[in-house]
Simulated assay, not measured.
Amino acid sequence: MRRQRGASKFEFAVTVAIFGVLATALLLRLNVIQEDAERTEVDLTVRNIRVGIQLAIGERIMRGEEYRIAEVAAASPVDFLGHRPRGFREGRTPSGPGQWSYDAANRELVYFPRLPQAFADATELRWRYVARNDSSGRPVGASLVGIN
């Protein structure tokens, strides 16, 4: 009787099947991680814009320059970040996935997701930049409000 050297075809097929299942599980998990990362990036960008707006308004109040709050309400909300978000385009609709823009005419911040499934299949996310006025119509604040 001859001794067999190496693996049989069956053993090879089982090994390939195991690696296939592991690779599929890894790719699915990586996709979930990418979706989480994009949601976190968008959430942090919007949160940082909101904090920047609050800091700018608070700074004017602390200096006794409440009349300058109107400047904050009139500016682009992206101006209150330390830097522009990755893929930011001023005044134009984003041309592709992963890009931000601010439309000053409509006062809307727009983001086109790289992975729409991370945002319930939304192809674009929008926030409106609104001024808050007191009863006499003077601006006393500004906020970024989610539209969708």
Results as ranks from 00 to 15, higher is better:
residue 24 T to P: 01
residue 25 A to C: 09
residue 43 D to W: 07
residue 24 T to L: 15
residue 9 K to L: 12
residue 48 N to Q: 14
residue 72 V to Y: 00
residue 89 R to Y: 03
residue 98 G to M: 01
residue 63 R to N: 13
residue 125 L to W: 06
residue 115 L to Y: 13
residue 88 F to T: 09
residue 38 E to T: 03
residue 131 A to C: 11
residue 45 T to F: 10
residue 65 E to F: 08
residue 124 E to C: 03
residue 133 N to R: 14
residue 82 G to I: 07
residue 44 L to F: 12
residue 15 T to Y: 11
residue 33 I to L: 15
residue 114 R to M: 09
residue 47 R to T: 15
residue 67 Y to D: 15
residue 50 R to K: 14
residue 113 P to C: 04
residue 139 P to Y: 01
residue 134 D to E: 03
residue 133 N to W: 00
residue 47 R to N: 15
residue 99 Q to R: 10
residue 8 S to H: 04
residue 4 Q to D: 08
residue 20 G to W: 02
residue 98 G to Q: 02
residue 139 P to C: 05
residue 93 T to V: 06
residue 136 S to P: 00
residue 148 N to E: 08
residue 21 V to Y: 02
residue 59 E to C: 05
residue 122 A to D: 07
residue 62 M to H: 08
residue 125 L to T: 06
residue 87 G to Y: 03
residue 59 E to K: 13
residue 141 G to R: 02
residue 48 N to M: 11
residue 92 R to L: 13
residue 58 G to P: 01
residue 50 R to Q: 13
residue 55 L to M: 11
residue 35 E to M: 14
residue 144 L to M: 01
residue 75 A to Q: 04
residue 127 W to Y: 08
residue 45 T to D: 09
residue 26 L to K: 02
residue 99 Q to G: 03
residue 25 A to T: 09
residue 83 H to E: 15
residue 104 A to P: 05
residue 101 S to T: 05
residue 5 R to H: 10
residue 103 D to I: 09
residue 138 R to M: 09
residue 75 A to D: 07
residue 37 A to D: 12
residue 142 A to Q: 02
residue 16 V to C: 08
residue 25 A to G: 12
residue 16 V to I: 13
residue 11 E to R: 02
residue 5 R to G: 11
residue 31 N to I: 00
residue 34 Q to I: 06
residue 12 F to T: 13
residue 34 Q to K: 14
residue 29 R to M: 07
residue 4 Q to S: 14
residue 106 N to Y: 09
residue 16 V to Q: 02
residue 25 A to V: 11
residue 15 T to F: 05
residue 139 P to F: 01
residue 139 P to E: 02
residue 11 E to K: 07
residue 68 R to H: 13
residue 17 A to E: 04
residue 112 F to P: 05
residue 103 D to R: 12
residue 44 L to A: 12
residue 110 V to F: 00
residue 140 V to G: 05
residue 2 R to S: 12
residue 25 A to I: 07
residue 54 Q to F: 05
residue 54 Q to V: 04
residue 30 L to E: 06
residue 26 L to V: 12
residue 65 E to V: 01
residue 119 F to Q: 01
residue 140 V to Q: 01
residue 18 I to S: 03
residue 10 F to A: 13
residue 114 R to E: 11
residue 126 R to Y: 06
residue 113 P to Y: 03
residue 53 I to R: 00
residue 13 A to E: 07
residue 86 R to I: 12
residue 76 S to T: 04
residue 138 R to K: 12
residue 48 N to C: 01
residue 88 F to V: 07
residue 71 E to L: 05
residue 111 Y to V: 01
residue 129 Y to L: 02
residue 77 P to M: 00
residue 93 T to Y: 06
residue 116 P to V: 03
residue 79 D to N: 15
residue 64 G to L: 02
residue 36 D to G: 11
residue 81 L to T: 02
residue 49 I to F: 05
residue 90 E to K: 12
residue 40 T to M: 13
residue 81 L to N: 01
residue 12 F to N: 03
residue 63 R to C: 00
residue 100 W to A: 04
residue 7 A to S: 08
residue 88 F to S: 06
residue 37 A to F: 10
residue 86 R to A: 14
residue 93 T to F: 10
residue 82 G to F: 08
residue 130 V to L: 15
residue 39 R to V: 05
residue 125 L to D: 04
residue 3 R to W: 08
residue 73 A to Y: 03
residue 32 V to A: 14
residue 23 A to Y: 06
residue 20 G to C: 09
